[in-house]
Design a protein around this nucleic acid. Structure first.
Lengths: 199, 199, 199, 199
DNA sequence: CATGAATGAGTATTCATTCAT
DNA sequence: CATGAATGAATACTCATTCAT
């Protein structure tokens, strides 16, 4: 039924690549290392990927699609903006927790490639931003979010903070549990840190 | 009179390198490109830097020192924590605004090297984190910052958001003005985004 | 059928390298020259040798093994010490005569590397010395060799003289025949040059 | 009175060079290393030597001249051939013993340069050979040396053995005393090793 | 489909030599 | 004479990519 390949060579190579990228960094990784990690010959990689860059591109595409599909199917028009925001953060944490290699590449390696790689990669980040932006706007319409904040800054704050928390976790070796941080982080982002709620 | 170098070759090379790193990315930059950009011969670079990595390392060291010196001299024990936090953000914005190449390398290229480069680089980031952490703690003591927030998350939120705002600006080509964002960003971080100050 | 390499690339490269080493000297030889001489690409060399030094090391190992195997199989416990010594010299001459490049590298280039290269190379020379030493000792036991000579000096004299004769021949361009010198040389070494056998 | 230079810069550089050549090998030695060892600037070397190779060439010339002058002045037409041969060996040993660096370069480094360097160097070796040849011929005329030996082989045997003994000593670090070996070595070369003086 | 040997362009780094001071 | 900063040609080695088997 799989229209792509009989055996999971494609998946096999990609996941090996992600592991290698995670360990060495994208530019430091060699095709030979990926091939060995995947248990295939160097040349075989070129049967499934146009070139080294394409491995990263396909990974980002696939990963993004999966993420947004999950998110969409989970929350399509159901909850309040605040609830959806919390859910988004929680999903992001869950996904990262599930596969640290994926998270590492997604959080760290992918970033550096922004300006250097194809548009595909930028798109994934843009979609995330847009999603957050959408939620915030809806939140404002629902009256749950203040109107005197710059939406651009809010988007960035949320995106960056979630991102950073995951990256810290990834870089620390994934030693602690990520998901329990979702709730307090969401609250923090929403409520701010000041003692006296602005007059 | 300059006891270090007769002419500014060291500075000349470093700033050329930063420009090249900013444009191509660290790993994509070649010594030949840097040399050409600096108007010196390839070999000359090795009179001032141990190797390619050392260029980045020296840059980070110098930049960090400059940043922290400025910050320290500006605010030594003077203001409230909240004021100091705003000042830190403003300084960060100013510095970035002054030299987009520096900001680009500092924000983007340096990051990717975390796991790959010498400890020097990690140290700079750690110092920033610690500084933010310190300010937040003082803020709590001063009663200006709530006590029911996880200090680790707060640090990350502030660091990440400032970082992200600068990075966005850098990646966008530095087209708009950064400094005016300092005030609203500080407020946003402090006050949160929710309409109804937490019950 | 050859289990080692499909085609003789390994041999092809090594023998080209020896030719180049012989002509230019080890340190003056470049990988590019060797590659061209072998009719392969530069990179191909690194599929068969770890690095430039490894080419020399593998050559010395192979050559030594071949030499000692031949010697051992020829003379295992058969003849008198004097006969074995003559045979050793003759073999050394034969081998050199067969391939002047090999001899040149073995006699000249290898030497200079003594202090500079891996132990492998020293070992080969040591084995030769030991072999000569062994033969001389047996010769003394058999009563064919005087006991009032310092065995260390004898070893050195034999080794050095054979070596020098070959080296001269090599450096002269291999123009004359080496093997006919084996008999008179052996006699000379054994009998000395003085007219009146020491009183 | 010294027509060459006021201070001994020339000598200073040359002896530093020999030390460095002895330690690293000629091709592995750099001008910078020699300059540092001599306590002068890199450029200064080029005031006294045409280039790197010229340092070696001048060294060999000077050393050879010194050696032959000493030898000539010591033995001009005085002794028997046998005595002169012994004296030559003794002188060679003495000179080596006096300065191990000189010996090391002369014995080892110089050799490798044979085919690679200027004729000057070959000349020095040729002179030594000729000297030995001369002595042997005179010895034959005096009736002290057999006539049934090939003079070429005898020359080589003597040259090579003395050379080898010194080289061994040099490579061993000059730990033992060389001069006491002169007498037994001369005897060995002259008398051979066979127990029963060939019938 | 799969292989992995072969390729050769690409690159960091070294170092003999020059020359302005 | 002396310096040492500057040069840039030279070179070992790497690695993405191809293609004959």
């Amino acid at each position: 039924m799989e229209p792509k390949q009989k055996n999971g060579k494609h998946e096999q190579i990609m996941s090996a690549a992600i592991r290698v990228f995670a360990e060495k960094g994208y530019f430091q990784s060699t095709i030979a290392q990926i091939a060995r990690a995947a248990g295939v010959a160097d040349g075989t990689i070129y049967l499934y990927f146009k070139n080294k860059e394409d491995i990263m591109a396909q990974f980002v595409n696939q990963q993004s699609k999966k993420f947004f599909d999950t998110f969409t199917s989970m929350f399509e028009g159901k909850q309040s903006a605040i609830e959806r925001l919390k859910a988004l953060i929680r999903l992001h944490f869950q996904v990262s927790q599930e596969d640290r290699y994926v998270a590492l590449v997604y959080q760290v390696e992918m970033r550096r490639s922004d300006r250097l790689m194809k548009e595909d990669i930028k798109d994934a980040l843009r979609m995330y931003h847009d999603l957050v932006g959408q939620i915030v706007e809806e939140g404002q319409q629902e009256g749950a979010i203040r109107h005197d904040v710059q939406i651009g800054l809010v988007k960035r704050m949320i995106f960056a903070t979630v991102d950073e928390v995951i990256t810290s976790w990834v870089m620390a070796g994934g030693k602690y549990d990520l998901e329990p941080l979702a709730e307090p982080l969401a609250n923090l982002l929403l409520q701010g840190i000041q003692a006296t709620p602005t007059a």
